[in-house]
Amino acid sequence: MASRIVTKKSGNKPVALVIGASRGIGRQVALDLALNGYIVVVAAKTSSDASKTTPFPPDPNSNHSTINTVEREIKEAGGEASAIRVDTTNPSSIDALVNRTIEKFSRLDAVIYNSGAIWWASVEETPLKRFQLMQRVNVEGLYATVQAVLPHLKRQPSGGRIIVVSPPIYSRFFRGKTAYAMSKVAMSVLVKGLAMDFQRQGLDGKLAITSIWPAVAIESAATGRFTQKDPSMANDLRKATIFSDCILAMLAAPAKTVNGQLELDEDFLRTHANVTDFSKYSVVPGTSPRRIMPAELPDLTVKEQDDEGQRVDSAKL
């Protein structure tokens, strides 16, 4: 498993773009990528004057944590970072983010898409505006990001990686949050589909797209709303470091191993990083947080998986 200390690398450092990195899980991912040799572009919508933030660092799950405070945290820890504001509902803003990243660092090696909008309720109790926001941030934001970064990732001699925070596909996930599930599962479909594109193009040894999802609920701004009402719920939470450790392990794995995979953090670390003791990730020491994901997930392939018939490519018609 990746270390949690600064790793010195020879030559040009790899550049990671973390979208949705102002607080919570995204902040932890940005910090740990920087501590492991990456130059990190910290991107999200929330910005501030980090020099005036007191006390520092702020609560990582509060609104006082912004892309600028995360940038400051990374630099004070000895890493390299640049904060760039982005609105993931606006494709032009995403294009500008990627262009500024390339202008500043002349390369892009890894993209982590952590930006997300959440609304858990029945279809009847989910207003159309909430549904549309989730589609724009979760699905369209990811799609626009992929379109913007692919040309740059393809240019990297060592290849490039995209990691998406989206779930495995299974029916129980739809229950009680259909609109949200529609947006998140669509992200996972993009992971599967783009991975197939890489395979067809003979790029799956160089490029990879992978999804990551928590097996156990993780401490974040979202879960903080529940623990404020019932502090005992913290017993069922893990620290965000499990996510960043898993992402580091994914980035270190061969592209063909992870391309198109919909992974759970715990299971990937157990299988690919030989982690057997997860106690250090418990928010409350000595507890065994409840797993929220199924132990086994459905296989999405069919017997006729390789039979495409006469495939049509609209882009070439």
Rank of each mutant, 00 (worst) to 15 (best):
M1I: 09
L300R: 05
A2H: 10
M196K: 13
P127S: 08
P60I: 09
A2W: 04
Q199N: 11
K280E: 11
G159N: 08
T7C: 13
M134N: 09
A315K: 12
D230L: 07
R4H: 15
G24R: 06
P151F: 04
R155V: 09
L203W: 15
L297E: 01
T69H: 06
P289S: 00
L108E: 01
R136D: 14
G309C: 08
L262S: 09
R225G: 14
F268G: 07
A117Q: 08
I212E: 01
Q156M: 03
V146H: 05
K8T: 10
A253T: 08
G205I: 03
S158K: 15
K104T: 13
V191C: 03
I247R: 05
G26W: 04
K8C: 09
V29K: 02
A315V: 08
S65N: 07
Y113S: 06
S282H: 02
I94A: 10
E308Q: 14
K45D: 13
V216D: 02
F268T: 01
W120C: 11
H64A: 10
A96H: 11
V146R: 00
T145Q: 05
A208R: 02
E125T: 09
K52S: 15
G78F: 09
K206D: 09
G260A: 05
F278S: 01
S65G: 08
E263P: 11
L17P: 07
A295G: 12
A253C: 07
E263D: 10
D299I: 06
L35Q: 15
M196N: 13
P91Y: 03
S279I: 10
A215Y: 04
H272F: 02
I118G: 01
V42S: 10
P289G: 04
V185K: 05
K303Y: 13
R172Y: 12
T178H: 14
D59A: 06
D306L: 03
T126W: 11
H272S: 13
D236M: 06
A96I: 01
R27T: 06
A16E: 00
K239M: 14
T101C: 12
H64K: 12
I292H: 14
V149P: 08
W119F: 12
R291G: 11
I102D: 05
Y180E: 01
T145F: 06
V258S: 08
P289R: 00
I118N: 12
A195D: 00
V70H: 11
V275L: 11
K177S: 14
Q305E: 15
D95L: 10
I163N: 01
L108A: 02
R155H: 06
Y143P: 00
S65T: 10
A234N: 02
I5N: 12
V189H: 12
T301Y: 07
E219W: 10
I218R: 02
Q199H: 14
D306K: 14
W213P: 08
D245P: 13
L97Q: 04
P214N: 01
G159F: 02
H152R: 03
I19D: 11
K280N: 14
R72P: 03
